[in-house]
Design a protein around this nucleic acid. Structure first.
Lengths: 193, 193
DNA sequence: CAACTCATGTAATGAGTTACATGATTGT
DNA sequence: ACAATCATGTAACTCATTACATGAGTTG
């Protein structure tokens, strides 16, 4: 039988953020868009109940700061049991992801449509990947200038950030190359009629 | 207001399979493991109600073949309206995917653990990607030998298959390279103490 | 003054997983 | 005999998205 309140992966994602610094629920949501959003996303309405669970389990605490809005701002901080739980989860082998790529799904049926109809999809995808790549490369250069040698030391938060960034750059580069190949193939077909 | 019974992406994934050949529910599930499973997966208990919806919407029909088991085997075939719906969906811009990569999430917190604890994760991941890559490369060679020139013609199902395969190869290659870099970094740190 | 961001909260719906049950065929 | 595969079906559950509501502060 599984434990009564197993912590979901999202819970660990949140703990991972709070291990770096205390954050409000809104700030957690913002970081689950950028930069963590590249490999794990969640909406605020999903984050809220998860933070409550973590708090009830004693893995985080919060301090309510009376703010200007209708609700007081809650700043969450990770506790020692929270850090322990996060460390224990870290070394567990990750479960395989369920891949979901709608563009590839469409690609699998692209023989049903003409090249002219499908080209815009790949051009749009290429543009998005190019934009991401440019952004990541800019962040990378800033990091390399700012932190230098520290980015080769695996025991710093900066290295962890840099490592995920490298993965993002590799991923986007590969996507872009594939889109380029697809566009080439489709344009070639279009030209020949 | 959205239509009463909008077809989910999974529905189009199924239609895409049936556009190639008639299949039983079980066969659809099998193909949503391999080879479509690389970019879209689903369990049989999810596929079943989706097939029912498609059938009620007139996009597929089925023929019940009395089989040996307790239930008669149902072989589903796509209809003309089904093909039309699939073609219309094809050219719609795909919605952005919610990325979920647990290994990257752990990487983001790897500064909390020692290199010796994290190394097995990356070695295991590298092994899985190497295995996938070898498999894809084998399929690719078989396809290139068997179909040759046809793989450059975007209006054949073979090209569509080949195109998604190329994406898989690129993806796995990139994953492997990144895992290799991570292992190198962590081993280096471990050796120096 | 309209639009946007910060910041919390609720409700409803849809997507996806897990576990279970039935039963014939095929391979070890 | 036992396990695996083929093949369908049901129920309970968790995960995730969407839409909505409140209200202050900032920017063009």
């Amino acid at each position: 039988m599984a434990p009564a309140n197993p912590i979901a992966t999202l819970g660990y994602a949140i703990l991972g953020l709070l291990a770096r610094q205390p954050l409000s629920g809104y700030d957690v949501a913002a970081r689950l868009k950028v930069p963590v959003g590249f490999y794990w996303t969640a909406h605020y309405s999903q984050i809220r109940p998860e933070l409550q669970k973590l708090q009830q389990a004693g893995l985080v605490t919060y301090e309510a700061i009376p703010g200007p809005g209708p609700h007081s701002k809650k700043v969450y901080t990770i506790t020692q049991p929270g850090l322990d739980a996060l460390r224990a989860w870290l070394t567990q082998p990750p479960k395989l992801e369920a891949p979901r790529n709608e563009l590839l799904l469409k690609t699998h049926s692209l023989w049903l449509a003409g090249p002219g109809e499908m080209l815009p999809l790949f051009r749009a995808a290429a543009a998005v990947h190019a934009e991401h790549l440019a952004h990541y490369e800019a962040v990378r250069e800033r990091m390399e200038v700012k932190h230098g040698e520290r980015l080769t030391m695996p025991d710093t938060p900066e290295f962890a950030e840099y490592a995920t960034l490298r993965r993002g750059i590799g991923f986007e580069t590969e996507c872009l190359a594939w889109c380029g190949w697809m566009i080439e193939r489709l344009e070639d077909r279009q030209d020949r009629g």
